[in-house]
Design a protein around this nucleic acid. Structure first.
Length: 397
DNA sequence: AACCCGGGGCC
DNA sequence: GGCCCAGGGTT
């Protein structure tokens, strides 16, 4: 038997959502593919940020087949700037699974959907409830906050076990035949009314029976242990200007297939040891520091690219914070060593035929090409993390 | 359970 | 400048 508070919550939230829901691009119909893409993009990402990406993505990949058959680099480029880039690769892998296993249609089956790459407990519940109106929980940070407050739950929502418990509670609250609207209402309330910092309790449709507010704890809930601060990393990076056939271009490289910013392009850079960090002066223009950084960069980039690098001068500093790493980067302008001009030219020519080392491999046999000379026009095809986008735009302006 | 994986907006 | 995320994968 449901309590008065529970019945009140389900009834009032559903009716509030139906009267107040925002018009959003993924709410124009219940196409499971459109819901799926939106839910992946919305992971850890705000609605306003997602909307332009979503429109572009659906234009480019309107169907599961289109996404499954696209080059991976094109999908990554479409995701550029959105972050958590494994989401893009997992989404495409999921699309390919749907083509292979389910005839190109998202299956109306919880276990099958939950088995798709990149689809976890939250997203499978969201797809099943929103696209198919199945009575599955879709518990994200919003839902944990709303329910923690309404039922005055004091468990730590950072713990996985807490999410399991809230999922059970959330299922029990779903009104008959209205799973999609109810789940979206839960998240909509969290986004618009029951916000993290200063909840608008006086506008809340379920304020009357909210145990958290009645207890005066709406500002303390939900309980959540703090994340570890990101570890600091000092890096030196080079903007290496090409010459001859590469005049006007700069040297970039592609990151490894897995790990941080996988397969994205970047300016060459080097992690400093703690001792090396201390050698750097506060002032990037100091001659002593330039010499040190120049030597480090030269050694590292030369051995990787086979080019002779000559650091010229400090360009700018930049900070970039990930959830787990804090980069402090110092960028230097650099040239190719003068006597190395022929090698640079050869390397550029070699690239066209598949090898920067000039080994003369045919393009079909080229294994990996981590370094490339690019001009501004190449920014339209290669995917860069925001940090390097900013630096390169600054450089070319 | 702990860690890895981006980015932007808000206060 | 700290805090918040419409999480999932890996170990």
């Amino acid at each position: 038997m449901k309590s008065e508070a529970e019945q009140h919550f389900s009834r009032e939230l559903l009716s509030w959502y139906r009267a107040n829901k925002r018009t959003l691009p993924w709410r124009v119909n219940r196409d499971p593919y459109r819901i799926w893409v939106s839910e992946i993009m919305l992971q850890q990402t705000r609605v306003d940020t997602v909307i332009p990406y979503y429109e572009r993505f659906m234009d480019r990949f309107p169907t599961i087949r289109a996404l499954a058959e696209a080059p991976e680099a094109e999908v990554l480029k479409c995701w550029e700037g959105l972050g958590y880039y494994s989401r893009a690769r997992n989404l495409q892998a999921g699309a390919r699974m749907v083509m292979e296993l389910y005839g190109g249609e998202v299956p109306d089956d919880k276990t099958s959907v939950a088995g798709l790459k990149g689809v976890g407990p939250y997203t499978s519940g969201a797809i099943m409830s929103i696209a198919f109106n199945r009575a599955e929980p879709a518990v994200d940070g919003n839902v944990m906050r709303v329910l923690s407050r309404y039922f005055c739950l004091e468990e730590d929502i950072a713990k996985p076990k807490t999410r399991i418990g809230i999922e059970k509670l959330a299922v029990s609250l779903i009104p008959e035949g209205a799973a999609g609207d109810f789940n979206q209402g839960l998240m909509e309330l969290g986004a618009l009314v029951c916000t993290p910092k200063s909840p608008s309790c006086l506008l809340c449709p379920v304020m009357e029976h909210c145990a958290g507010r009645i207890a005066g704890k709406e500002h303390e809930l939900p309980i959540k242990t703090k994340a570890k601060p990101p570890r600091p990393e000092h890096r030196v990076a080079a903007i290496i200007a090409g010459s001859g056939v590469n005049a006007g271009k700069v040297l970039v490289r592609q990151r490894p297939e897995t790990g941080l910013l996988a397969q994205m392009w970047e300016l060459p850079h080097l992690l400093l040891t703690k001792e090396q960090s201390y050698l750097l002066a506060i002032d990037g223009a100091a001659a002593n520091e330039q010499a040190v950084a120049g030597e480090l960069l030269t050694k590292a980039v030369e051995s990787e690219s086979g080019l002779l690098i000559r650091p010229r001068k400090w360009f700018m500093d930049a900070e970039h914070v990930f959830s787990h790493i804090h980069w402090t980067m110092r960028f230097y302008l650099a040239d190719l060593g003068a006597e190395d001009y022929s090698i640079a030219a050869e390397s550029a020519a070699a690239y066209e035929t598949g090898g920067i080392d000039g080994s003369g491999e045919s393009p079909s046999e080229a294994v990996e090409q981590p370094y490339r000379w690019i001009g501004p026009e190449d920014m339209e095809t290669l995917a860069f993390p925001n940090l390097f986008l900013r630096i390169l735009r600054e450089y070319w302006d």
